[in-house]
Amino acid sequence: MASNLSQLDKLENQSIFIIREAYSQFKNVAILWSIGKDSTTLLWLVRKAFFGKLPFPALHIDTTHKFQEIYDFRAKYAKEWGLNLIVTKNEEALAKGVGPDKGKFQCCNELKTVALKKAIAEQGFKALYLGIRRDEHGIRAKERVFSPRDEDFEWDYKNQPPELWDQYKTKATEEEHLRVHPLLGWTEIDIWEYIKRENIPVCDLYYAKNGKRFRSIGCETCCGPVDSEADSIDKIIEELKTTKISERSGRAQDKEDDYMMQKLRSLGYM
């Protein structure tokens, strides 16, 4: 069981290095906290990097379609970890009735991407920390650690900046903000082994109840559980060693059409 320890240490050190590097460059930053296992792990690493006290806010994009367990978890740990929590919603779109039943692409784009744009405009963030990983999705596998977005929020995936020897891009004149991805090199199993080692709290939805559990958590409306008996961290780790099911198999926005994720992401989706 302990065989992955040195690998976890490597990953932890690399992530802390990236987190500190981005803060030293941008100062006016925030961590995007979806309350899922990855962004909660990222939050844990950020707390480590800054010796317990976050010098910047945690931002939650609330589509209002999240699970109750997610809202409960948010309230509990925002308090326990003394977070400066900013919750942001696209009130205008919600008032117009934008929702998953009227088209998933529009819903993800309006309630997540546009809401995020609004928060960035209001707070003037120069960079955002996101907990995305390369092994989640082929499009995310192409990401850089520091990834620029232009004023229209677009990701120019055909012309990404070079990144070498832990030297990252700084903000160029025409760019809106940078996405910083400290967990890019982690796999799903690394995350769970680290959660176990560090005793990081995660939402109960990840643990199996009545033969089902969530492997990836998004909105209640667009994310389904997988068949599983894994009701503890150890069992989840065992399950992941043998499973042949993709992590995001329960996530609707990955499926709709071949390139929906690419289209969403090029418009500024996470």
Partner: peptide, 18 residues
């Protein structure tokens, strides 16, 4: 994975898999 990569049958950007 990029639409342009598949249609043109070329790799545009570096990627990592496990």
């Amino acid at each position: 994975h990029l639409e342009e990569e598949r249609k043109q049958g070329i790799t545009i950007d570096t990627t990592q898999v496990f």
